[in-house]
Each structure stands twice: as C-alpha cells, then as structure tokens.
Design a protein around this nucleic acid. Structure first.
Lengths: 188, 188
DNA sequence: TGCCGAATGTTATCGGCTAACATTTTGCTG
DNA sequence: CAGCAAAATGTTAGCCGATAACATTCGGCA
C-alpha cells in the first residue's frame, strides 16, 4: 500500500464530515466542539485535525476556480469589468452541475448562520477573487477595477447563496441569476 | 464616582490600542500575541480583554453606519439598486472627514495583510450591509437585490481601501471614487 | 503468517478567551 | 485630609481550537 489512498482513510474522513455537518446543523457551528465531532465519529480529536486542517474546513470547500476564470475570459472585452465578470460568473454557473439540493443547502445554511463562518468563507474566496482579478488584468483591465469587480461580483454571489439557503422554496439558479442581474442588468 | 467615565480608563485603553497597532504593523497580526501587547502596555492580558472584547477589535472599529444609510436614502429611487448604493456611498464619503492619513493607513494595512483580519472585517461590515439593505428595501427594492447591492458595494469599498493602504502615493478619495465608478459608471 | 507503512491514539503545549474572586486605585464626600 | 464606594486592574483556573513529538494499532500484500 504505497500509492493511491486506500478506502479506509476516505471512509473515516467521510464519517467525520457527515457527523460534523449533522451536529453543526442541529446545534450550530460555534456551539459544536471538535471533541464532540470526534466522539460522534468514533475517533480522536487529533484524527479530526489530521483529516481537516481546521474546523472551518469541515464545512468550507471550493473546487470551482478554474471554470470561473475561463468563463470570464470568454466574455467580450468591450464590456465594462463588472459586466464582464457578472456575465462570466453567470456562464460558469450554467456550466456547473446543479448541486444535489438538500445536502448543499444544509451546508450553506450552516455557514449563513454563523457570522464567523461567513467571515471565513470570505477568506476562502480570496483565492477565487484573485484569480478573477488576474484574469481581468490579463484581458486589459486596470488593477483597481479588476479587484473591485472581482470582489463585488463574488460578494453578490455569496449573498445570493445565503439568501437561497434560508428559503426552501426558491431554486438555486433563480437566485444566482437574479443576483448577477442586479450587478449587470444587460442580457447575456 | 458614579456616572461618567474617568480619564484613566480612556488612557489605558489608548495605550493598549497604540501598542497593539505598533506591534501589528511591525510583526504582523497573527505573529503578535495578546500577552505581548499587554506587557508592552504595562498591563495584564485580562485587562486587554476588558477594554477590547476580542483581539480583532484592537484594529477594527466602525462608526459610519448612520451617515451611509442617510446618504443612500437621499438618492433618486428611479436608479437601479446598485447604482443608488454606489452613489450613496460616494456621497457619504464626501461628507465624511478625510481621515488623518498615516494613522489610518497603518491600520488598514495591518488588516489588508492578514487574511483572517480581512475576513473579520467583513463580519464587521455585516451591520453596515444590513443597514444599507434595509434602507433600500424601505425605498421599494426587493429583498434579494437589496442585499446583493449592499454587499457588492461594500466589497468594492473594502477592496479600494486595501488597495489604497498598500500604495503610499495615491490619495484615498481617488481610490474610493474609482472603485465606486467601477460599480456604476454614471455620473453623480 | 509476518512485515511495512498507513492510520490513529497519547500527551504536552500554545494562544485566544471567559469566569470568579481578590486587590489596588481613584476621586468624591464629609 | 481621611475614609469610603465604586471603578480599574490583577490572579488563578479553565475551555476550546490547534500543533508537535512520539507511541501504537491496523490493514493488506509478499
């Protein structure tokens, strides 16, 4: 067993993540202790940290960056930076698979309800923001407008997600679309 | 001594804040320990926490909310939510006193350089964001567009501040104006 | 089966933060 | 100016998240 990760590690990791999400959703993020999560998953605190570098990471993850950058780059350069970013994000969103409902919603809701987690989510977005900004700059936008457009667009997106998570009846795509339209009223 | 706060408390508080800013600026936020701050201020750790509820609050403060809400409300309702917010913020900014340079710049720079502080700054903004959003809603904007516009505008503002803090030569008002113009290209 | 390395457990420690209680300082009042 | 109550600070103890060093168990393949 020298190379690819065996199933055991993955199973433990999944167990921990599941128990964590469960506890977070039921009692709140701050109110849940890593020790609780560990014992719920039949594991030691130490093991939790070996699978997830921080408590936040039990909830926050993000693999979307490349898709987003590409979609933004594909937008016409004639557009204003913000419009280009908004349309790029809209496009990227369409290309992404609609996530499987309830699971994601619970996750987002946990984040939405913890001030500290929302803050951390922002830190998580810093990477994405930088990638967007760099993409814009490479396409001829100045440094400040690039960063501004990127951060504003991401803020809008996050806000949309949080709003969605708290209202069971709205489809995700509608909310995201509406948010991005608030940034850039033009049609795609 | 039953009523108004005597000068001593204020002096101690100021001493702590000053030493903290100094240490943060020189060695970074994460790298500075509350114990260090305390001892630099000739005081106990406990006392630091009695003056500032958390370490973050040694850097982050914000008294601007009311001005902002008023300025946004004064904008014409015919405008799109984002445009109204951007122009309101621009207006509020003009009404505020230009802060006294270096002191503020150091503070912002400390925040800009710490991912975790930037994240916390966002949490700090949550109040302002809500106030802006409520103002917009009261003026006839839907819930989602209101929140989206508020968060996007604030994100833009913060980004401008960070950019400014890292470049000694640019005047603050220029950066802020440029950022808000990226959101809403129309003239005021 | 026996072995090697991966996965987990132990123990100790650090930094931010809180609570309960003791002590000093402050500045007014007599 | 003496004395007193409240305010300000100190002391001690502890919780929680996180990290490090070292020991132990487990899992699968030769």
């Amino acid at each position: 067993m020298t190379v690819a990760q065996p199933p055991k590690r993955a199973r433990t990791r999944a167990r921990i993540a599941a128990q964590a999400l469960d506890l977070f959703d039921r009692q709140g993020y701050e109110e849940t202790t890593v020790a609780q999560i560990a014992s719920a998953a039949g594991v030691t605190e130490m093991t939790v940290f070996r699978h997830f570098p921080t408590k936040e990471r039990l909830v926050l993850d993000d693999p979307y960056d490349p898709v987003i950058a590409a979609a933004i780059s594909a937008q016409p350069r004639a557009l204003a930076p913000l419009a280009r970013t908004a349309r790029g994000l809209r496009r990227a969103w369409q290309d992404l698979p609609e996530p499987d409902g309830e699971q994601v919603r619970r996750r987002v809701r946990v984040v939405a309800r913890s001030q500290s987690l929302r803050a951390s989510a922002w830190r998580n977005n810093a990477d994405t923001e930088q990638i967007i900004a760099e993409q814009l700059r490479g396409d001829g936008v100045g440094a400040l407008p690039a960063r501004v457009a990127a951060s504003a667009a991401l803020a809008a997106l996050m806000t949309a997600l949080y709003e969605w998570a708290e209202h069971d009846d709205i489809p995700l795509s509608d909310v995201v679309l509406a948010a991005l339209t608030t940034l850039d009223s033009g049609d795609a």
